[in-house]
Design a binder for these strands. Structure first.
Ligand SMILES: [Mn+2]
Ligand SMILES: [Mn+2]
Ligand SMILES: [Mn+2]
Ligand SMILES: [Mn+2]
Lengths: 153, 153
DNA sequence: AACACTTCTTAGCCTAGGCTAACTTTCAGA
DNA sequence: TCTGAAAGTTAGCCTAGGCTAAGAAGTGTT
C-alpha cells in the first residue's frame, strides 16, 4: 500500500520484513546477554580471585542467590558452566570461549568509548549494555577508530 | 575479603556494589527498551502512513498480533498509548515525548555509527539495540564527535 | 443486506529472569 | 567436637514477552 509514484519520497520506514529482521536480531542479542555477562564475570573472578562462588555472582550481579542458582542452572543446561557446590563455578570449553569473546568485546567497547570522550566509569557502565548489541562490523569499526587514533600517520 | 595490602594490584574487578549498580542499570534499560521501540514505531507510522495499526506493528516488529495486543495493553496501562480498535493506535502526551526522545536518540546513534565507518543498513541494525544502552553522556560524546567531524576547525 | 476478508481479542501455554522465605549443607572457629 | 554463620538449594510466587489456535468484530464490495 506504499505510494511509489514519487521516486524518493519521505522513505523513513524500511520494508516490513527488513524492519522485523532488525528487531529479531535485537531480541536474539537480549537472550544471550545474560549468559555472556555471567561467563565473563565467572572468568574474571577465576582469574582475579582464584575462584568464582555463586554468592559472589549474587553480590556482583546485584541479584539474589536464588536467581543465581536458577541462572547457573540454565548455563549448565546449555553446556557453559560446571558447578562444584561450595567449591565454586567453572567454565566449560564453550563457556571459556564465550567468556573470552565477551571480555575482548567488552574491553574494546570500553576503550572505544573512552577514546570518544567518555570518562572511565561511564564507559564501563555503558559498555556493560552496549557490548551485547554491537555487531562484528561495528566492533571492527571501533577497532579501526582506535588504531587510527593511536597511529595518526 | 579483598586484599588491600598492595597499593595498585591487578584491580580489574570494581567494588561489588558498583559492579551491581552497572548491571542494575542495564536491566532497567532492558525493561524500557520495548516501550521505546513501540512508541517510536507508532510515531513513525503515524507520520509516514497517517495511521498506526496493530497489524502493522505486528509485521514490522516481527511478532504475532497476540503479542502486540498484550504489549499495547502494557503501554496503555503505563499511559503511553491509546487505542481505537480498527482505527489504530495513538500516543498520549507522555508517549509522544518518549517517542520523540527515542527517535532523536536513534537517529543520533545511526549518524554516529555511519560517521565511524558503518554502512547505513548495519548502522540501522545496530542502532536498534545500542540506542537503549547509551547513557546521556555517551550520546553527548557522540554528538560532539559528529559536530567536530562536520566542523573540523 | 450478505459475505468474505481483515483486524483484533481471548484463552491457554511457554521461558527467562526476577523475588522471598525456608530449608539443607558445609565450613571454621571456639 | 560442636555449633553458628555462610553458602547453596528448593518451593512458590511474579512479570515481561513470546507463541498458537480460535473466535469476535469491523469493513468493504458486490
Ligand atoms: Mn554486559
Ligand atoms: Mn561485559
Ligand atoms: Mn530499539
Ligand atoms: Mn529505535
Amino acid at each position: 500500500m506504499t505510494d511509489s509514484r514519487v521516486s524518493m519520497p519521505r522513505r523513513s520506514l524500511p520494508a516490513a520484513e527488513d524492519h522485523a529482521a532488525r528487531f529479531a536480531r535485537q531480541r536474539e542479542a537480549d537472550r544471550t546477554a545474560t549468559a555472556e555477562d555471567y561467563v565473563e564475570l565467572i572468568a574474571d573472578l577465576l582469574r582475579e580471585e582464584g575462584e568464582a562462588r555463586a554468592v559472589d555472582l549474587s553480590r556482583r550481579m546485584g541479584v539474589s542467590q536464588a536467581t543465581v542458582t536458577a541462572t547457573i542452572g540454565r548455563l549448565q543446561r546449555d553446556g557453559l558452566v560446571e558447578t562444584k557446590p561450595y567449591r565454586g563455578l567453572f567454565l566449560t570449553e564453550a563457556g571459556t570461549e564465550l567468556a573470552t569473546a565477551a571480555k575482548s568485546r567488552h574491553d574494546l567497547v570500553v576503550r572505544f568509548l573512552i577514546a570518544v570522550g567518555l570518562d572511565a566509569e561511564t564507559a564501563e557502565q555503558d559498555a556493560e549494555g552496549l557490548e551485547h548489541h554491537a555487531s562484528d562490523e561495528a566492533l571492527a569499526a571501533f577497532a579501526r577508530f582506535l588504531a587510527k587514533r593511536d597511529d595518526p600517520i
